[in-house]
Design a protein around this nucleic acid. Sequence first.
DNA 1: GGCAGAGTGTTGACTGATTCAAGTTTAGGG
DNA 2: CCCTAAACTTGAATCAGTCAACACTCTGCC
Lengths: 142, 142
Amino acid sequence: MCVVTPPDFERLLRGTALRVTRPRLAVLGAVHAHPHADTDTIIGAVRREIPKVSHQAVYDSLHALTAAGLLRRIQPSGSVARYETRIGDNHHHLVCRSCGTIADVDCAVGEAPCLTASEDHGFSIDEAEVVYWGLCPACSTS
Amino acid sequence: MCVVTPPDFERLLRGTALRVTRPRLAVLGAVHAHPHADTDTIIGAVRREIPKVSHQAVYDSLHALTAAGLLRRIQPSGSVARYETRIGDNHHHLVCRSCGTIADVDCAVGEAPCLTASEDHGFSIDEAEVVYWGLCPACSTS
DNA sequence: GGCAGAGTGTTGACTGATTCAAGTTTAGGG
DNA sequence: CCCTAAACTTGAATCAGTCAACACTCTGCC
């Protein structure tokens, strides 16, 4: 049912200093299957595979995987934290002001930071995050 | 001590459908005096003027003023809500990953949305919000 | 294959920003 | 000056996320 070959999550984990555990594999799978899902949704998806995982294990896994660079955390204003596996391509997001739906947008530049601040105030900038706010097709017609 | 003339907050409020109340004037003054301050800081600042305001009144005022367009709410990932009075010029923000400091950056374009998404997925976009992530001068030297 | 121990997971309590709701006060038009 | 909707007070509730103590299990090593 999945047209793309699922990544070899175990190999991804071994590529970092992280141990390979069932919760982590399940979290990677859940985020891959549900892009932009919030933590609650991820916990639900993980529990379909491992019914007894604690929410704490999911939180820990999400943090560890995010720190390792295998996940990206996004959190538009007014939303809870969301996660995605599409990392490394520096893409951006469209967010619906009404229903909160998130869609991916390719970054024309490709490498972070894709924009240069007009005045950096002495900051060393490594990323420019862009969020496009608007209404999704469903919400703009109603 | 303030080199810029403070805006006429009462006039701003009357320009909208909002009633002029002491908490609202104090909130406008507090946000103007403390750009990018979080709610707690704002409550503290307001209470120096009106010691007995409830936190709820400040929350209500912040929401009402934001909805009226007199304030702008910003909330970088991992931070609580912050507010600023500099609105209408579509400027962007520099955020320090280490200490959370926020600095303003002018938008080269000036009018929202300053960027056009490469593929809008049918969304009607009205704003492109840009957050530059990095380290502030103080944090990058330590 | 068995051991050891650092890294992970479980459990359950807790925090803190924000919201809800019921009742009281007040701004501002008539 | 009065009235009414809007705004404020009070106090409790919510909920994502975190903390901490203890139990378990990967993984490298013998």
